[in-house]
Amino acid sequence: MTGNENAHVHPGHHARLAHLHQQLSSLRSVLPDDVWHSTWDQHQQRLEHLRDKVGPAIWQAAAARANDTDRVLVDLLLKGDLNP
């Protein structure tokens, strides 16, 4: 697998990914453009591609299903605390 391929995303992942998408959108408003683009733009584009693929209604429903575990994991990811 090359670095440009995505792993298979199971529908069970949608809630966490939709929440991540929301959080990345929020970060965009508080980070300088160059920082946001160099760090998060590629990931945001992948999430938007997935959102477009599954459809906005399913994506919104998935975001509403995000639970405390999803929110904690996304928070840790964004803080860099899940990096090896």
Rank of each mutant, 00 (worst) to 15 (best):
M1D: 09
T2M: 10
E5T: 15
N6L: 15
A7Y: 05
H8F: 11
H10Q: 13
P11I: 07
H13W: 14
H13N: 09
A15Q: 08
A15L: 06
R16W: 07
L17S: 03
L17W: 12
A18P: 03
H19N: 11
H19M: 06
L20S: 07
H21G: 04
Q22K: 14
Q22I: 05
Q22V: 08
Q22A: 13
Q23D: 08
L24H: 03
S25Y: 02
R28P: 00
R28G: 00
S29K: 11
S29P: 00
L31N: 00
P32S: 09
P32F: 01
D33F: 04
D33V: 09
D33G: 09
V35N: 01
W36G: 01
H37I: 00
T39L: 02
Q42M: 07
H43L: 15
Q44T: 01
Q44V: 01
Q45S: 11
Q45Y: 04
R46P: 02
R46K: 15
E48G: 06
E48S: 10
H49P: 00
L50Q: 12
R51Y: 05
A57H: 14
Q60W: 05
A61G: 15
A62I: 01
A62G: 02
A62C: 03
A62K: 02
A62H: 02
A63R: 14
A63P: 01
R65C: 13
R65L: 08
R71G: 04
V72M: 06
V72A: 04
D75A: 10
D75K: 12
D75T: 09
L76Q: 11
L77R: 06
N83I: 06
P84S: 07
P84V: 06
P84D: 14
